[in-house]
Amino acid sequence: MLSLQTAIAFFGVSLLLGVTPGPDNIFVLVQSATQGKRAGMLVVLGLCTGLVVHTSAVALGLAAVFAASETAFVVLKMVGAGYLAYLAWGAFRAPVTEGSDASAPLLRPLQLYRRGIVMNLTNPKVVFFFLAFLPQFVDARRGSVVLQLAELGAIFILATLVTFGAISYFAASLGQRLRGSARAQQWMNRAAGAVFAALALRLAVAQR
């Protein structure tokens, strides 16, 4: 079991990582600004579900097997890049609404939640990050390594909920003001498409 000091230190570092610009929090920011706070939080919950999978993989040793496979890395990153390119295409073609419909989410809750899961699971960099990051806070003298890794994963997810939730709230507040204008909506959709396209390119050219 983790010591209280280790848990607090890890939580603090995780909070800092959560606000550091990266694909996941940028993804949350864009979704929240274009579709609202509720949509952003559903995406956050999806991302956190993906983190549960990554934590389990690291704890059980599966991530190390994946990390050793060049083919698995390439396939997963190309799937992720393709998915982001698909989101970019959808954002560029998103319809502009006016009046009361301007603030309504364009996607169903399950679709938004699934977006978060897919976004997280198809990013192979998360696997390498967890493999490098979590073990640094493990002390074999304090008992089960698997249990400690699970605890670290849970703390990281909590920090992600806090930081990404804050990002979602503030991005949605700004987006709500802009969604009342058809022209602003059009520009937000174009910006979202550009961000997704850039993330797709970045993932496609990523190296191990």
Rank of each mutant, 00 (worst) to 15 (best):
A7K: 10
S168G: 15
Q207W: 01
A159M: 02
T55I: 14
A63Y: 04
Q185W: 09
L4Y: 12
R202P: 11
L174R: 10
G90L: 11
G165Y: 05
A171S: 15
V28T: 04
F133Y: 08
A9I: 11
D101P: 12
F10H: 06
E70T: 15
V52G: 07
F156G: 04
L16R: 03
L87D: 01
L42I: 03
V127K: 01
S168Y: 07
L76V: 15
F27A: 08
L17R: 01
A64R: 05
Q185R: 06
T163V: 09
F156T: 04
G50T: 07
Q31Y: 06
V205Y: 01
L42R: 06
S14N: 06
S56Q: 12
A200T: 01
T97P: 13
A59Y: 02
T55Q: 08
G46S: 04
F170N: 07
R183D: 13
L60R: 02
T20G: 04
I117Y: 03
A94R: 05
V28K: 00
R179F: 09
L4I: 14
L45R: 04
G175P: 13
A7G: 11
H54F: 14
N25C: 03
V162P: 08
G50A: 09
I157G: 02
T49F: 14
L158D: 07
S181K: 05
L42W: 05
S3G: 15
M1Q: 11
L112Q: 07
F73N: 13
P21S: 01
L51W: 11
A81P: 14
L76I: 14
A166Q: 07
S32K: 02
R183C: 10
G40N: 01
A39T: 04
A198I: 13
L134I: 13
